[in-house]
Structure formats: C-alpha cells, structure tokens
Amino acid sequence: MTTPHFITSLAGAAALVVGLSGLSATPASTAPAVGEEASIPFVSAGSIRDFRVVDRDTLYVQDIQRNWYRAELMAPCTDLPFAETIGFDVRGTNRFDRFSSVLVRGQHCPLKSLVVSAPPPKKAKKKG
C-alpha cells in the first residue's frame, strides 16, 4: 500500500504554485517587508530565540533565523521592563502573532500588533 501524495512531482508542485499565485516561475524574495504584520511559527519547537524589552508597551522578539519583530501590547504590562524571563501564550495555534499574549510573572499581556522590524535599538551606555 502506498502513501497518498498531494503533489507527486517537483514539476507538479511548481505548476501548482505558479497557477495558484498568478506569478511567473521566476524566484521571488520570500522575506517579509519591515513594518509588515507577521507571525512566528512553531513556537513550541523553540522558534523564538531572544527578546528585548523596550518599555511596558513594547518588546522585540527574535526568531531562530535571527529575524526581528516588534511587538506592541494592547495595554502596559507593568512588570515587563523588569522581567528576566517571559512566556509566549499562543492559545493552541503554535504561532506567535497579534492574537497571542506575553506572560510576565503570571500576568497575560495581549499583543496589539507584531510586525517585521529592524534589530532593536542599542541601549545607551551609562556615563560614569
């Protein structure tokens, strides 16, 4: 007994992609544009690599491919600037996106948006 295949050949897969997208068969960039709404898949498999907190309303999240995303929260998350660890509540979807929440010391902090971003700004060095 053979396993059923949805697409049985590379040529068939290419024809399907071109047919569905309405584009030519020339390669296109798959990288999302800065500022574009995004999601990070496979959160339970460790696809989030790092995070940087800006303030009570904003943080940057880095995926395992070292892409950065800027997460804006719906409301201030009081303990976020002081958190050493945070959780990512994806509500069973396994995708971190604008419908997800950040967990900080037991507090659920829902996202307003998650967009592709440049790396977070560097922190200013203290004079002293």
Rank of each mutant, 00 (worst) to 15 (best):
M1D: 15
M1T: 06
H5W: 05
H5Y: 07
H5L: 14
I7P: 03
S9M: 11
L10H: 10
L10N: 06
L10W: 08
A11V: 05
A11Y: 09
A11D: 15
A11H: 12
G12L: 12
A13F: 15
A13H: 15
L16R: 10
L16T: 05
L16K: 14
L16F: 15
V17S: 01
V18L: 01
V18P: 00
G19E: 14
G19F: 14
G19S: 14
L20Q: 02
G22F: 03
G22A: 06
L23A: 04
L23Y: 01
L23C: 05
S24L: 04
S24R: 00
A25Q: 11
T26P: 00
T26S: 01
A28E: 00
S29T: 08
T30A: 05
A31H: 14
P32N: 04
P32L: 11
A33P: 02
G35P: 05
E36I: 00
E37M: 06
E37V: 12
A38F: 04
I40H: 04
F42I: 06
V43K: 02
A45Q: 15
S47F: 15
I48D: 02
D50H: 11
D50K: 11
D50F: 11
F51E: 01
V54Y: 08
V54M: 03
R56E: 15
R56F: 02
T58C: 02
L59R: 03
L59S: 07
Y60V: 07
V61W: 05
V61K: 03
Q62F: 00
Q62C: 10
D63I: 02
Q65T: 14
R66M: 07
R66N: 14
N67H: 15
N67Y: 15
N67S: 14
R70Q: 13
A71P: 10
A71Y: 09
L73H: 08
L73F: 12
M74F: 06
A75K: 13
P76W: 00
C77R: 04
T78K: 09
L80F: 13
P81C: 13
F82K: 08
A83K: 01
T85R: 13
T85P: 04
I86Q: 09
I86A: 05
G87H: 03
F88C: 08
F88V: 04
F88G: 11
D89L: 09
D89K: 08
R91I: 00
R91N: 11
R91L: 10
G92C: 14
G92A: 10
T93P: 07
N94I: 04
N94R: 01
N94Y: 03
R95G: 01
R98E: 11
R98Y: 09
F99Q: 03
F99C: 02
S101A: 14
S101E: 15
L103D: 04
V104W: 09
R105W: 06
R105E: 03
C109S: 05
C109H: 05
P110N: 12
K112T: 14
K112I: 12
L114F: 04
V115N: 06
S117E: 10
S117T: 13
P119N: 05
P119M: 06
P119K: 01
P120N: 10
P121L: 07
K122R: 08
K122Y: 05
K123W: 13
A124Q: 15
K125V: 07
K125S: 02
